[in-house]
């Protein structure tokens, strides 16, 4: 019988610790597949965040560097500046990137740091137990917004892609989602493009991926996909916000 599917060599054999229905697993695989397809696993250095994907260093089959909460873009900067021939990426969640690491991501983008950021936005802090994130939607309940996020108290959710796309150094900015097969394919395409642009030395690239958190949203995996589609897509519209002219 012909083999129609196999694990990517971009990931190690280590079993994921992610909750059932969590889309981190899909995103990990997409990144692993892209690194393998581009034949850059031997050059790749990934920087893992603090949050649900804190153990990313055990999953990607390449050199990995664990960073402090929010600091992955700074660590990646250090790695890339020392060895520009390495393919350097950060893998960060919304608390890590949009809250405590807001300064690091903005300035990495502003400098046009030639790295790729995989930004997983599931509108909540997962690892610490479902607290409100900067990306939590208005009215969305979290363990630190038990009555629903109140704009008067905490403002509106940050649209990271829109914000970063105002910076000239951010050469590639695209928001995608993994709530269905079609969008998963689009996500992989965006990730691949972002890495290709790093390889051609374009500068900073970020792929914001809308993702689910069934455990902390208190929904089943299927309900979560639907919730993402109905609630996150209207506030976080999908699409490309920046691509270098010559590759459009």
């Amino acid at each position: 019988m012909a083999k129609v599917f196999e694990r990517t060599n971009g990931l190690t054999d280590k079993a994921f610790h992610y909750c059932p229905g969590c889309t981190h697993g899909i995103i990990h695989r997409l990144v692993g597949e892209v690194l393998e397809e581009l034949d850059v696993l031997g050059e790749a250095v990934g920087v893992a965040p603090v949050g649900c994907s804190v153990f990313a260093y055990d999953y990607f089959n390449c050199d990995m560097h664990e960073a402090a909460h929010g600091r992955a873009p700074a660590v990646a900067t250090g790695v890339k500046r020392v060895n520009p021939e390495n393919v350097v990426f950060t893998y960060q969640g919304d608390g890590d990137l949009a809250s405590i690491g807001a300064a690091e991501i903005v300035h990495a983008a502003a400098r046009g740091e030639n790295i790729t950021t995989i930004f997983v936005n599931n509108a909540i802090y997962g690892m610490t137990g479902g607290q409100m994130a900067p990306t939590t939607l208005i009215g969305q309940k979290a363990t630190t917004s038990p009555y629903g996020r109140d704009e008067k108290l905490t403002g509106k959710p940050i649209k990271v892609s829109e914000m970063l796309s105002t910076l000239d150094g951010a050469k590639f900015v695209e928001r995608v989602s993994v709530h269905n097969a079609a969008n998963i394919r689009k996500t992989k395409k965006a990730i691949k493009k972002a890495f290709e642009l790093q390889l051609s030395g374009e500068g900073f690239g970020i792929v914001e991926i809308l993702s689910t958190c069934p455990t902390n949203w208190g929904l089943t995996p299927l309900e979560s996909l639907k919730w993402l589609e109905e609630n996150m897509l209207p506030y976080y519209p999908l699409g490309n916000l920046r691509t270098p002219k010559e590759v459009e």
Partner: peptide
């Protein structure tokens, strides 16, 4: 760097890369 925090984390990355 954009801050001392970022600077030391860049050091962390560069040191990890062997510099």
């Amino acid at each position: 760097a954009e801050s001392e925090v970022a600077a030391i984390n860049m050091v962390y990355g560069a040191a990890g890369a062997g510099a």
